[in-house]
Write a protein that binds this DNA or RNA. Sequence first.
DNA 1: CGGATATATAACCGCAATGGAATGTATGGG
DNA 2: CCCATACATTCCATTGCGGTTATATATCCG
Lengths: 113, 113
Amino acid sequence: MSSPLDVLAEPVRRRILDLLLERPRLVGELTDELGLTQPGTSKHLRVLREAGLVTVRRDAQRRWYELRPEPLSELDAWLAPYRRLWAGRLYALEDHLDAMPDEDGEPCPKESP
Amino acid sequence: MSSPLDVLAEPVRRRILDLLLERPRLVGELTDELGLTQPGTSKHLRVLREAGLVTVRRDAQRRWYELRPEPLSELDAWLAPYRRLWAGRLYALEDHLDAMPDEDGEPCPKESP
DNA sequence: CGGATATATAACCGCAATGGAATGTATGGG
DNA sequence: CCCATACATTCCATTGCGGTTATATATCCG
């Protein structure tokens, strides 16, 4: 019972979904593109399957994996109240720059310098 | 340099953001609501800070944590091409139910039975 | 039927991340 | 000046996850 967010934390799984966004793929194709071993790919696919993010179509020994985007709507729903914030209101950058503790780290990286 | 998705995989951190969605909070408040120890809370807050998802305002010994939703736009951007799919086209449910391998598992849980 | 192909599963390992206890640091109050 | 408060950091143990190797299962081909 893992949340889509949990499943998508893995970069590899995100790449799989991105690949399936174009068209259904065989496990072998995905394995090639990901540069993983076949069992590695299969395990990620299993996680995606159990999260309902992909479905399988059997074709002899082959398995066509295809995208099932529905569960992503949950993520979208979670995101909704936040989207309003960064879209609508202008963020007072200087305000919290001023209040920044004088640590040497970079607590708030800007996205594009 | 962790992606928002990576940071949000943690349920606790999602709850923190949800709490900060209402109003800024002190570490103590968050600790109470989360049922964690104070250092535990602080560590999650550190992760959120480094991801740019929260900012801190110092007030004597207290620290007011507030939400910074901007990095979530990256998640939103990743989500965009998928959103079109589950929103626009009707998903052929029977189609892949038909192609479902006869395993005992439940590869595709429906969201509301 | 026997081997090759395509994929899944199991067993195992290493690492990173999480959570708790103890400690460090800064600020305010008496 | 000393102690309490509020929070951060460090250290440590546990665990869960991702990756690989080896093995199992199913299907096609000759």
